[in-house]
């Protein structure tokens, strides 16, 4: 399957984008030592022409924030945190939901209607609101400071964001599982004497595995969206550092150059310096697009999992100089199509 994925154009495009982004991000940290250029005032000869935040221009492709730091560098450093955290959260969601999903799909599928209704509440409450509601008392700094260390806060946030989606995803996986368990070939396997575990591993797994990939990618996109929203509402990853200085309150700061934090810091001057907000959001958008491309690629590959339906055009030579045995192709007219299965049988 992996080999097939890497020949799929959609998947390759999405994967390539994310891989390059991550590679640059890691290089930035380990080779260039997290260097972030700062231009607070732009000079033309000896004359100052502009002050930070500088709009995007030729030398500074994405502009700078209000302190003069270049967005190009900040985005590059932040990429690995944002994408990494999203992958981590999506992975936890998948693994935990898989466990619950298997239990539900194998034992409680009879009551699927009622179980589905029980978690239906998640279909009426947006995750963003729920996450804001639960996390903002925990993550926004009070004048007394944080009660937890940075990594403790990150851990709690990851766990909360992951578990918020566990009930609906479990139901999704469980329903898929139950549907497969009701297929006729499962009955066949049971009659022959396969144990529950054997059926799960040998007969259900091949069907559920591609679905899990798809669910993982969908959760990844969802997580990215929620992270962007949280950043927009200034609930940053690992906590929001508020400045309680009465004279010169700094804007709320993200603790790394994580993208969601970059969105939130610039939201106040949205219409004056739009690029400060738009650059991180645009990168969110591009990454989400790349993830969706990967998702589309996986869907394409898994849908044509067993049989390649693409008909193969057989070119028929008009002249037939040598009566060769290999040329006995069961085709008479030009342009007639032949299925691949047929062709495979001919090949020895």
């Amino acid at each position: 399957m992996v080999k097939r994925l890497f020949t799929n154009g959609y998947f390759l495009a999405g994967f390539g984008f994310i891989a390059i982004l991550l590679a640059i991000s890691f290089l930035h940290t380990y080779i260039w030592d997290n260097y972030v250029a700062q231009t607070q005032i732009l000079y033309d000869g000896a004359k100052a022409v502009a002050a930070a935040p500088l709009s995007p221009r030729w030398e500074i492709p994405f502009g700078t924030d209000s302190l003069g730091f270049h967005f190009t560098h900040m985005i590059s450093i932040g990429a690995k945190y944002t994408i990494g955290i999203a992958i981590l959260i999506a992975l936890i969601r998948l693994v935990v939901s898989f466990v619950f999903g298997v239990l539900y799909g194998a034992y409680l599928y009879r009551f699927r209607r009622y179980v589905t209704w029980m978690v239906d509440v998640f279909n009426y409450i947006p995750v963003t609101i729920l996450a804001l509601f639960i996390l903002s008392p925990f993550l926004v700094e009070t004048p007394a400071g944080f009660a937890y260390t940075f990594w403790e806060r990150v851990g709690v946030e990851v766990v909360v964001l992951a578990f918020l989606a566990v009930p609906p995803v479990s139901i999704l996986i469980g329903n898929e599982m139950g549907r497969i368990f009701e297929q006729e070939f499962i009955d066949g396997a049971k009659i022959i004497g396969g144990s529950r575990l054997h059926i799960l591993l040998k007969h259900v797994r091949p069907h559920i595995q591609p679905q899990l990939w798809i669910i993982f990618m969908q959760q990844l996109v969802q997580t990215m969206l929620v992270l962007a929203h949280l950043g927009f509402f200034k609930v940053f990853f690992g906590g929001t550092n508020l400045s309680f200085d009465p004279l010169w309150p700094d804007p709320p700061q993200s603790l790394s150059y994580e993208w969601a934090g970059l969105i939130g810091s610039g939201i106040r001057n949205l219409t004056l310096t739009p690029w400060v907000v738009l650059v991180p959001i645009a990168f969110f958008a591009l990454t989400i697009l790349a993830m969706n491309l990967m998702l589309e690629g996986i869907k394409n590959v898994t849908e044509n999992w067993r049989v390649v339906n693409r008909p193969i055009k057989v070119t028929v030579q008009t002249t037939n100089p040598v009566a060769d045995e290999e040329q006995f192709v069961p085709v008479s007219k030009k342009g007639t199509v032949q299925r691949r299965e047929l062709k495979l049988e001919n090949k020895h």
């Binding site: 969206l225 962007a228 929203h229 927009f232 969105i263 949205l270 219409t271 739009p274 907000v277 738009l278 959001i281 645009a282 969110f284 958008a285 989400i288 697009l289 969706n292 589309e296």
Partner: peptide, 18 residues
């Protein structure tokens, strides 16, 4: 449609205002 569907809501709403 696929490309447009991938745009985050934040981007569209902010672009509108700008």
């Amino acid at each position: 449609t696929f490309v447009f569907e991938s745009l985050p809501d934040l981007l569209i709403i902010i672009m509108f205002q700008i």
